[in-house]
Nucleic acid binder design. Structure first.
Lengths: 300, 300
DNA sequence: GCATCGTGTTGCAATTATTGCAACACCTAC
DNA sequence: GTAGGTGTTGCAATAATTGCAACACGATGC
């Protein structure tokens, strides 16, 4: 980069200790090189080299400037290499930590779409219990976390944060199927098919029930959201879902979803991000950006 | 700094989102600004902005470059401010952690000399037990450590490391006073005035005695090196000193110093440095450099 | 559909910054 | 004192940056 020429000039002089030697190595005249030093010294208002009969030596101001210049040169190399990554010349592997709700439909579709554009990228998807996904970022086991109702946000740099609408999923023939919206007390009269604790959905439901003073007595608990959904088919039982894991084309399964209102209770939050203190590899950064865009489009 | 102009140009465009607005704020023509973008894009081999009818937006490559440029602009500001410090426009406070041997003559003289040149600088000198000085750097309590026989070197960025010659200090009339050099077994026949453990001097003496299989039985132990020296006046007792804390003009005290050889045992090491992961304020960095030079001149 | 206004882009010339040439100044070693 | 190394300066040549004027494109309003 042209603008870093002066940095390279100063660095070379400090390395060789001689203006003439440095000029020769740089392929310019000593005269030109000398003027560049004088130029910098004028801009800074101080000398940066001590002039000895045997050559030039950086003084303290010079050492300070040199460190900056060396860092700048090295950092620009990293920028170029990152940009090379972008153009797909180097692929990348992305490790994602996620929870059950995200992994059902949203993430697979997103990964599929991403692979169309970046076929060389590889993925590791790690399904973890609520609260574990964020933790797995700490030792860089995973690059990105996409989690519903995370337990730890302190170390997370969140790129996306958004509310997730809760839905009640039931048979198309269910008595509640014709309602436009439901409340939790509409549901407790029917058998409930609930995720296990500490799932995010279960937590939201527990809170809502506690608010109306009615304990939830699940007919069935499972950590398989698919199973819960299927069990509600052609029955009186109710299962629950978030917007993100609503199965497309529920009608083909003789199912229907109705929004569940939980007034006075904050909506459940979906979060996507990475470890705060970490600079992501380009591939992972790009995927996270895509994730953010997709989530924003779908759920905002 | 002229070389950062391009950085400022790119940054301004991303801020305003419009080439014409940015050009106006920068006081140049859109044409010139556009050419500078094209220049960078040519150098990098990729576009850094998306062109919209409504203006320019950085793409991913652009965001990567922007972060670099923003960092460099900020870092150059720090460089300039550090250089301003150098010229004494801003003083500084220097906290020094040191051990007993250093604090007696060497450090006071060094600080005095430094204050002649930089009268606005202030000092805090913290006399600590062996092993504590290095630790006090960790939480930035102290800026610099100057210690004899440090216990921890891992976190230390050492600027000076040098051997310290051990001396036996005695009455000018002592039977050993005429010897050119002594060994530890020459000394053990006489009453010994020793520093307490874990002092560096004591450690060196313990090791030497252990090597010849004779335990040291001090007549007196003290953590006051001055007291030990004075107790050897006009007596058969022997005290010990390092080169760095040899009192000037011993003869005026009717004392003499004779080098003590400890063959087969590594000489005690004097170390000066700062916390490895820390960039020192300019004043402290300058003082440490002066310390290094002085130690190198005196003891190399 | 057309005119207007906003955006960015390009050919060419003017201006500024950088560089080279040649000579000079200073120091050290023999 | 001379030779050989170092850095520095006046002036002109060269390269990079900038401005001027015109163009291209998209969005909006009538």
């Amino acid at each position: 980069m042209r603008h870093l020429l002066i940095a390279k000039y100063i660095e070379k002089i400090s390395r060789t200790g001689s203006l003439r030697s440095a000029a020769e190595e740089l392929g310019i005249t000593p005269s030109a090189l000398n003027r560049r030093i004088l130029g910098v010294e004028e801009e800074l208002g101080v000398e940066i080299f001590e002039r000895h009969p045997s050559g030039l030596r950086p003084n303290i101001a010079g050492e300070i400037l040199l460190k900056h210049f060396r860092d700048q040169i090295a950092d620009m190399d990293r920028v170029k290499s990152s940009i090379a990554d972008l153009s797909g010349r180097r692929a990348g592997h992305i490790n994602i930590a996620t929870t059950r709700e995200v992994v059902q439909y949203f993430l697979p579709a997103l990964i599929k779409q991403h692979l169309l554009e970046f076929p060389a990228v590889t993925f590791g998807v790690n399904l973890l219990e609520r609260g574990e996904a964020e933790v797995s970022l700490l030792d860089n086991t995973n690059d990105i976390a996409i989690v519903f109702e995370p337990l730890r946000l302190k170390e997370l740099h969140t790129v996306y944060t958004g509310d997730q609408q809760m839905y009640c999923v039931m048979s198309s023939q269910h008595p509640l199927a014709t309602k436009k919206r439901l409340k939790i007390y509409d549901c407790v009269e029917y058998p409930l098919l609930l995720p296990k604790r500490p799932e995010g959905i279960r937590r939201m439901l527990d809170i809502a029930a506690e608010k109306i003073g009615v304990p939830l007595a699940p007919s069935l608990e499972s950590n398989s959201l698919d199973l819960l959904r299927l069990m509600s088919q052609d029955s009186q039982a109710l299962s629950f879902s978030l917007a993100i894991n609503l199965r497309p084309n529920l009608k083909n399964d003789r199912l229907i979803s109705v929004p569940l209102d939980t007034p006075g209770i904050p909506a459940g939050v979906l979060v996507a991000g990475h470890l705060r203190t970490r600079v992501l590899p380009v591939a992972a950064a790009r995927f996270l950006e895509t994730t953010n865009k997709e989530l924003t489009e779908k759920f905002s």
